[in-house]
Amino acid sequence: MPSLLLTVFLLQLAIHLVNTFGASSINTLLWNLYSNLPISKSESSAEQRELKSQYMKVRKEMNAISSQDEFAKWAKLRRQHDKLLEQLEKNKASTDSTRATFDSAVSTLRWLGTNGLRMFLQFWYSKQAMFWIPKGWVPYYAEWLLSFPRAPLGSISIQAWFLACTAIIILVSDALVAIVALVAGLGSGTAQKAKKEPIAVPSEKAGSKEKEEL
Rank of each mutant, 00 (worst) to 15 (best):
K193T: 04
K76A: 13
N63Y: 07
L214K: 07
I169L: 15
Q54N: 03
N27P: 00
M1S: 15
K205D: 14
Q68M: 02
L51V: 06
K205T: 10
T190M: 04
Y140L: 13
A75L: 05
N19C: 01
L176F: 12
F102T: 05
L171P: 00
S155V: 06
A200N: 09
T7L: 08
F21D: 10
G207K: 09
I179N: 09
K73D: 13
R99P: 00
Q122C: 12
M56F: 05
E89D: 05
S42W: 01
A206N: 07
S126V: 12
I133W: 11
P202S: 07
Q122M: 14
R150F: 10
L4D: 13
K60H: 11
K193S: 09
F162T: 10
V201P: 02
A93M: 04
Q54G: 01
L112M: 13
N32L: 03
F131D: 12
A175R: 14
K211F: 05
S126G: 05
I39H: 13
V183S: 13
W124G: 00
S155T: 13
S53E: 10
L171E: 13
S3C: 01
S94E: 15
E143C: 12
A105S: 13
K92M: 01
W124F: 13
L182H: 14
Y34M: 00
S173W: 03
S25Q: 04
G136S: 08
A100L: 09
D103W: 03
G187M: 06
S126C: 10
Y140W: 04
A93Q: 09
N91P: 00
Y55D: 03
F131A: 09
N63D: 14
Q128A: 12
N36H: 06
S35I: 03
L5N: 09
L6K: 12
S97A: 11
M130L: 14
A75E: 08
A194S: 10
K83Q: 12
D69E: 15
Q159S: 15
K92Y: 02
H81P: 01
A191I: 05
N32I: 01
L37E: 14
D96P: 00
A191S: 05
S155A: 13
F162M: 12
T101I: 02
L33M: 06
T114R: 12
L30T: 03
L145N: 11
I158R: 06
L33F: 02
L153Y: 01
I199N: 07
K76P: 00
E50C: 01
I199F: 05
K205Q: 13
K41D: 02
S67V: 04
A175K: 14
K135S: 11
K193H: 05
L109N: 14
Q122E: 15
L13Y: 09
A160I: 04
K211Y: 04
I199S: 08
A160S: 15
I26N: 04
S203I: 00
Y55E: 05
K76G: 10
V18R: 14
S66N: 15
D96I: 00
S107N: 15
A191P: 00
F148S: 14
I156T: 12
I156A: 10
I26V: 11
Q68S: 08
W144K: 15
S203Q: 03
A167C: 02
K195V: 05
Q68C: 00
S53Q: 10
A64H: 14
L30M: 10
W144Q: 15
E50M: 04
L145G: 06
M56H: 08
L13A: 11
E43Y: 03
